[in-house]
Design a protein around this nucleic acid. Structure first.
Lengths: 167, 167
DNA sequence: TTAAACTTTCAATAATTATTGAAAGTTTGT
DNA sequence: ACAAACTTTCAATAATTATTGAAAGTTTAA
């Protein structure tokens, strides 16, 4: 496999994988492109490489910036904006985990808490609803706590966690 | 909040949350309904409760069975099939984690391995592609190993893992 | 202050994904 | 062997989500 083929394969795989880490295809592809680029890229270059429109590029870059994964940089002597992504995979994983917790897990915890707190009217079905949603609430909170614990452990968190598990 | 409202809220929240654990809305809603049901439900009952068609119910039940989350049960004196879901949240989490690893993470690991193994032609861009995809490969493998370690630890794995982390 | 260079917005459209419903298929009791 | 009871399949359709492109908006250099 040559460079170009490997590059295309990586970008398209990462793109279709977006759903795994909760973002859309174009967003994931832009991130992938920046991730293997040796220098900051302009909007023009991103559009050309990925064959996507200006509007699409602009919107998805904004989302990546909102996530904290991509930053604007200035290039000496250039008027247009250039973009770079976080290059350290562990830092990247930390950011993604933190954002998903905030955006998706926390809201669910809130609703599970509400639902599992309804008044027990003594009926079997109410008891079952309370019991099951309480269990889910507890599980979700525990997982979120684990994620946040990991995430706040800046240095080499993955490696550290693995060491703990495998010892 | 009364029973019916809590039930509806739980089912719709769990449904729209499907994407978080990689399944579609109807699938997640069927699972949610079974999860808080006090008895096995027939296809008829599921259709009625969720207001979805027979075809949709049939297809999504099949997928849930493929995932290993739902099982058919026979009810004495009844000709039609009834369905139940795994009621233990930890077991449920184990199954989901295992399936997602198999369906989504493993294939990505394979591709990252291929891409990161291309011949180094000495150019800067090739070096960068190899370096970055290698890092991603390593991270993904590590995470997958952690998931599988957790997943094979049948009893109370969540609690155990938390104890390790917080001590 | 102007106009060229550049970015953002958003209504229209395309692409994708989910859902329906009726026909075909299967199983079971007699 | 038949037909009633039930389930599955799948082409058509609906709903959702992503993408385009051109107009509006912004910034900068002279």
């Amino acid at each position: 496999m040559q460079y170009q083929e490997a590059k295309d394969k990586f970008i398209s795989t990462w793109g279709s994988l977006g759903s795994l880490w909760g973002i859309n295809k174009a967003m994931a592809q832009i991130q992938a492109l920046l991730f293997i680029s040796t220098k900051p890229l302009s909007m023009e270059e991103i559009m050309d490489e990925l064959k996507i429109s200006r509007g699409n590029t602009s919107m998805n870059l904004r989302q990546l910036i909102d996530w904290g994964i991509v930053s604007k940089t200035i290039v000496a002597g250039e008027r247009k904006e250039f973009f770079t992504t976080e290059k350290d995979v562990q830092e990247l994983a930390r950011i993604v985990a933190k954002e998903r917790s905030r955006r998706e897990i926390q809201p669910v915890i809130k609703i599970l808490d509400e639902v599992s707190s309804i008044k027990d009217d003594g009926s079997e079905k109410t008891k079952e609803l309370i019991k099951q949603t309480k269990a889910l609430h507890e599980l979700t909170e525990t997982m979120d706590a684990v994620i946040n614990k990991l995430v706040n452990q800046k240095q080499n968190w993955i490696t550290k966690s693995v060491l703990k598990f495998f010892k």
